[in-house]
Design a binder for these strands. Structure first.
Length: 982
DNA sequence: ACAGAAGCTTA
DNA sequence: GTAAGCTTCTGTT
């Protein structure tokens, strides 16, 4: 958010009531569902978004959010227990519309905000303040007088029903005081609707006159004796305290601990199909038509969305009654304070106190595996589904017969509704004693179709938050059974955002020990290990219930503990922008997989085998005996013992090093054997790791290779790929590149590879603000040649390639937290010479040294470093007393913001890409990510149209969160195989 | 059957 | 000099 930006904040709850009373009642034709307020709300939003120029606002918003009351119970009740006491419950036919209007907001692709313990007005006040501080303007879409105190030079209000703007003059005209005195005025007049006492006998006219006379409330109260009118004087003196309390009640909080940053409210173009789907479900025909026209969508082809109608008990909104989470109210045990947490002393209803109580309950509630329920009939399952949806948050876990979600079959699933309360639903457990065709199905399991029908309602209901641990697995799994999970959190990812780089990892077992102090049942205990390991469908159902129930229970508890910490550490937007949305994107990519040509690999494998066999003969000849070439120990004995070659370095275990570097050096001295070893290693490496292993990963069902991406594996924010790792497919040598030719597009498709050019150096130029680097990238100059020219005074024209090569190595060295030792090794030059290069580099680019020093200082002070998007990487050992350890952590800390920022950028690109391609009407499918490269499968005839979309999404991926001072450049090519596309 | 070291592949 | 994962060999469990 910056100067010139314009934020619209819609008072959603206020609008509901006004629309309900002002507009004629309207019901959905098919089932008499009341939807009058929803209709008014949708029309109002559409008008604001599409026809802003035709309304009195006349402004096109850049940022937009809709804000709701969470419930009527807020911190104000503790100031004044009678606050809003005389409010009656909302009309029956309004209640279901609370939830529908929130769904409408999401259908419009707009942020939908609410916070327990605060009124919508407090959130509005807070965001208006934040916008103002960022230099932006705000329009509050509401006509509520309670919000008028916020009006100012950069904040106006807009009444959408009267199409009228309310600025400073309008406030004065209506109330007789300027906006900044509205609080004092309301404190005097009170509010009968909200039961704010005020001073009896003082109305707006008198209040304005008194404030005019005395200036402000405090002065007025202090000098009340001067008031001439006897009754008025007495009333004010008698009600001094009431006036003060009233002032507190009407003062809006501008310091709500909001979790979303303004930048997350950037207005995005409406998603035509999504919106139309909702409008159709509501049966708003004329608005559906208008939206279809404006977004160029064919409405007839869109199915109505499934909308969830909330009951009075589930609905959030003003006056539907405070919801006290069940786990807080029913926890019998006295909550103990978890390590490092402050005891909750403040009142129970502030959001932080509530979260604290829940976190304590999650730790304190004791584990009772026998209490977990095993669900074996439909009615019990239905009851649990209802309990889960009433809870609003549910721990969820699937149990399957394989670690590979692309091959696994569902064995059952578990849910938890509050700490200690969980259930397992066995669906596909087999008995050990089966007939010849295999184990028979155990009796009394709910038929999988019936169970999934009920489960679907829960998983696809966006009003219920599903909490998983490594949810990508369950997402892929449920996807394969035709279910799309909506609204979810992943405790593994929350932990990763909080603690990347810290000890312990982010698996459920270690999180449970660390945060709850509870050791979970290990998988080994239920399924055994090694040869005798059984698949989960063979596990005894009682055992499975204890294990699976605990998984869901622990996951939900961890969520109660970890989620509030995101808020406290201001990492919510990292989680919600860079982690959570990537889960379904990666789930899709993994499910798509990529085609690999078996023939090419097997032909290559044969050639490699032949080459290696030939080399083996020659090696035995030269060595004079047969030995295991692949054993560095034996090889070392041959080379440095038997043959007496000059031994280079030794490894840390005291063995002779036989690394490629050592062997290359020996070869350069004219010894024939080392060269053969190097070549042999290359061939056997390619054969065993790639040509022989890859075909084994081809999924028999899909005929494609499906890698698995880990989101929470690296300290910097990069992804990792495994089983198979498709991020280290060879490219450097011509032999290796032949492996890439085996990665092919389907018939009628091309592979498109799009990679960021020099993204880490560009990030470095941005964060360290190096003018020459920035200029060079701006001008599209060869960056390594420019560096060489600056350092060695050699003109770029006709520069010897060796000079450029050295500069390139130095540029990379800088990114890796350079050391003279490392650079000397890389370039095979003396350490003194490398040292001299570095010194010269720092002289030419002093900003680099500043960046490195300030990063080290920051890391030492805080124990972590940050990317440009706020992701943290922890390096606690940077304070180590061991100089080697310390230096290593310093280099890692220097590298992490660079590598991590680049990783964040491509993550943002991937999240947007998954939406942008279909929005552009393209069938291109994103398949792979290799750190700075994305690989797509694109229909032949769409290649030309797709590449510009890919480029623009990738090149613009940092925006609008960060305006890079250096342009990003993406190179994209299409071909039949990966080798030619790259 | 498992774990660590060494070595090699990628960005 | 940063960040990963996989294979082989080797010694321990």
């Amino acid at each position: 958010m910056k100067k010139g930006d314009h934020l619209f904040l819609v008072d959603g709850s206020g609008y509901i009531f006004r629309a309900y009373h002002a507009l004629p009642p309207l019901t959905r034709k098919s089932d008499n569902l009341p939807v009058g307020a929803v209709s008014g709300f949708c029309n109002m939003l559409w008008k604001l978004l599409r026809d802003a120029r035709n309304t009195d606002v006349g402004i096109v918003p850049t940022h937009f959010a809709v804000i709701f009351d969470y419930s009527s119970k807020t911190f104000r009740h503790d100031l004044y227990s009678d606050y809003k006491a005389n409010r009656s419950a909302p009309p029956e036919d309004l209640v279901p519309q609370f939830g529908l209007i929130r769904q409408a907001t999401r259908a419009f692709n707009l942020p939908c905000l609410e916070m327990e313990g605060f009124e919508a007005d407090d959130l509005i006040a807070t965001y208006a303040r934040l916008a103002c501080e960022a230099g932006g303007d705000t329009t509050i879409v509401s006509s509520d007088k309670d919000l008028m105190q916020l009006v100012g030079p950069s904040v106006t209000m807009y009444d959408p029903m009267k199409d009228r703007q309310i600025g400073i003059p309008e406030v004065i005209e209506k109330w007789g005081v300027p906006p900044e005195k509205m609080i004092d005025l309301q404190a005097l007049t009170g509010d009968s609707v909200d039961n704010v006492p005020g001073v009896p006998g003082i109305g707006p006219k008198t209040a304005a006159q008194l404030l005019e006379q005395f200036g402000d409330l405090d002065t007025l109260l202090a000098r009340a004796g001067e008031i001439k009118q006897e009754k008025r004087r007495q009333s004010i003196i008698d009600n001094t305290d009431n006036a003060r309390v009233s002032r507190e009640l009407v003062t809006l909080r501008t310091d709500v601990p909001v979790s979303e940053a303004l930048d997350e409210f950037v207005l995005e173009s409406p998603d035509g199909p999504k919106l139309i789907s909702f409008l159709k479900a509501m049966e708003f025909t004329s608005l559906t038509r208008r939206v279809a026209e404006a977004t160029g969508t064919e409405a007839a082809e869109i199915e109505p969305a499934e909308v969830v109608i909330q009951s009075k008990e589930e609905a959030h909104g003003p006056d539907v009654g405070a919801r006290v989470p069940s786990s807080a109210s029913t926890s019998e045990t006295a909550p103990a304070s978890p390590a490092g947490a402050e005891p909750a002393q403040q009142d129970q209803n502030t959001p932080s106190a509530l979260a604290e109580a829940l976190a304590q309950a999650a730790v304190a509630h004791k584990f009772d595996h026998e209490a977990y329920v095993c669900i074996r009939d439909l009615q019990t399952l239905a009851d649990w589904m209802a309990e889960a949806s009433a809870a609003g948050v549910v721990g969820f876990d699937t149990e399957t017969n394989s670690l590979d979600p692309m091959q696994a079959e569902l064995c059952g699933f578990s849910i938890a509704t509050r700490p200690g309360r969980a259930a397992y639903v066995p669906l596909n457990h087999k008995s050990g004693q089966g007939d010849l065709l295999g184990g028979g199905l155990v009796e009394n399991q709910i038929p999988i179709r019936d169970a999934l029908t009920l489960l679907r309602n829960l998983l696809e209901n966006p009003a219920v938050l599903k909490v998983g641990q490594n949810l990508k697995y369950d997402l892929v799994m449920m996807n394969r059974y035709g279910i799309d999970i909506a609204s979810y959190d992943d405790t593994m990812l929350i932990s990763y955002v909080l603690d990347a780089g810290l000890n312990g990892g982010h698996g459920m077992d270690s999180l449970s020990e660390r945060w709850i102090g509870h050791k979970t049942i290990s998988y080994k205990e239920v399924a055994g290990s090694g040869k005798t390991m059984i698949t989960f469908d063979m596990v005894d159902i009682d055992k499975a219930t204890r294990y699976a129930g605990e998984d869901a229970d622990v996951t939900l508890r961890l969520w109660h503990i970890l989620k509030p910490r995101l808020v406290a550490k201001k990492l919510v937007s990292v989680y919600e922008r860079l982690e959570r949305p990537l889960v379904p994107v990666l789930a899709q990519m993994e499910q798509r997989g990529i085609s690999v040509d078996r023939q090419i690999l097997s032909r290559l494998s044969g050639e490699l085998a032949q080459g290696a066999a030939g080399l083996e003969e020659e090696i035995y000849q030269l060595a004079g005996e047969k030995f295991t070439i692949g054993s560095p120990k034996q090889l070392g004995d041959i080379l440095f013992g038997k043959m007496g070659l000059p031994g280079g370095s030794k490894t840390k275990t005291g063995q002779w090093s036989t690394s490629a570097q050592v062997l290359e050096d020996l070869a350069a001295e004219g010894h024939p054997l080392p060269r053969k070893i190097v070549d042999w290693r290359q061939l056997t490496k390619l054969k065993s790791t790639y040509t022989d292993a890859l075909p084994g990963y081809i999924n028999p069902r899909t005929n494609r290779v499906h890698t698995s991406y880990a989101l929470a594996a690296t300290s910097t924010g990069r992804l990792s790929s495994s089983e198979p790792n498709l991020q280290n497919i060879p490219i450097r040598t011509s032999e290796g590149r032949r492996i890439r030719t085996a990665f092919i597009a389907d018939k009628g498709y091309k592979l498109v590879s799009a990679d960021y050019s020099q993204i880490e150096l560009r990030v470095l130029a941005h964060v360290a603000e190096i003018p020459q680097l920035r200029q060079a990238f701006e001008d599209g100059i060869d960056i390594h040649a420019m560096t060489a020219s600056e350092m060695f005074g050699v003109p770029v024209e006709g520069m010897p390639s060796e000079v450029r090569r050295r500069a390139k190595a130095i540029n990379f060295g800088i990114i890796y937290g350079i050391s003279a030792f490392g650079l000397a090794n890389q370039l095979s030059i003396p350490r003194e010479e490398a040292s001299d290069y570095i010194k010269r580099y720092f002289e030419r680019f002093p900003g680099i040294r500043d960046y490195m020093d300030s990063t080290k200082t920051f890391a030492r002070a805080n124990g972590y470093v940050e990317t440009i998007f706020g992701r943290r990487a922890h390096y606690p050992e940077i304070r180590s007393a061991n100089p080697q350890m310390r230096a290593f952590n310093e280099r890692a800390a220097i590298n992490a913001p660079i590598q991590g920022s680049a990783a964040d950028i491509i993550r943002r690109a991937m999240v947007r890409m998954e939406k942008a391609l279909p929005e552009a009407g393209l069938d291109a499918r994103m398949l792979l990510q290799v750190h700075d490269e994305l690989i797509f499968e694109v229909p032949d005839e769409e290649v030309e149209a797709t590449i510009p979309v890919i480029r623009s999404v990738m090149e613009g991926a940092a925006m609008p969160a960060v305006a890079l001072k250096v342009p990003l450049q993406v190179e994209a090519r299409a071909a039949d195989n990966w080798d030619e596309a790259h």
